[in-house]
Design a protein around this nucleic acid. Sequence first.
DNA 1: GTTAAATAGGACTATTTTAAGCCTATTGCC
DNA 2: GGCAATAGGCTTAAAATAGTCCTATTTAAC
Lengths: 137, 137
Amino acid sequence: MLQVSRKFEYGLHAVTYLATKGLGRVVTVKEMADEIGFSQEFLSKAMQSLKRAGIAASVQGVKGGYRLGKATEEITVADIAIAIEGEPHLVRCGVKADRCEIFSSCHHRGYMNILQHKIQGLLNATTIHTLLKEIER
Amino acid sequence: MLQVSRKFEYGLHAVTYLATKGLGRVVTVKEMADEIGFSQEFLSKAMQSLKRAGIAASVQGVKGGYRLGKATEEITVADIAIAIEGEPHLVRCGVKADRCEIFSSCHHRGYMNILQHKIQGLLNATTIHTLLKEIER
DNA sequence: GTTAAATAGGACTATTTTAAGCCTATTGCC
DNA sequence: GGCAATAGGCTTAAAATAGTCCTATTTAAC
Ligand code: SF4
Ligand code: SF4
């Protein structure tokens, strides 16, 4: 329960990499995969998701690659999570009501939804900017 | 990402059922499964986990069943989660370091661990007692 | 003491989700 | 045109979750 996906970690590492070592540069997926130690193919999918969300910007063609699409102060951990895994649903009925057979008689949906928003609040409270300061590399 | 398991929801429902409709009684899994609307077999597993954690107490044999093992003020949502899903690991390296190939060069493990503790804090902040008051059935 | 109703739990299977890989466009510098 | 890159669809592999089945044990009731 409650474990982040590998793809999310790929995305988070990629963003911090771009923020620290990609300043002003356009960085290829190959470089990032090599430097960070990830599978190039899979990281590529994560980058595509980040790009669609506007967190990264891409340049196609030879000499292409990725750079950040926003300032580090404007990217939160929650943004990355949503870009990569879509809207969060702590309970299955959040996806679609008929995913749960006791939907109509369930009494703790309200609490679970509040809980979800609180968790989301935690993720939203950290920007890449503050994360990098905490890390102190 | 970050979705609770079905088994956890089974357990939470069972505990609130025992707390509201099982007062002083020993309730069978069959009754709970019928009333709540769950699979008896699977709920049974959840109850066994809750029992091992001391959240529920069991009585074997004919006329047996389950009742709460603690006061509702002393059971938190986190207790139920841990009883059913074991210690939480927001990141895979929490289970075992070699589950992550970039463990030695990873810089955001610290942040992820803090995040995990904050999430755990949220779950710990709600006891069954307060949950029932919020629900107002 | 036999029976029946219940928990205890191991072992298995099915389903779903996640992770990864493969392959074919398309883009755009040289 | 050739090449190095992103874009993305499709398929496969692995892992986690969900659910079932079966057997043992316990104990109240008869
Ligand atoms: S048990 Fe309640 S909260 Fe959980 S999925 Fe079903 S309706 Fe939603
Ligand atoms: S990327 Fe870092 S935090 Fe995530 S599992 Fe690997 S070592 Fe742990």
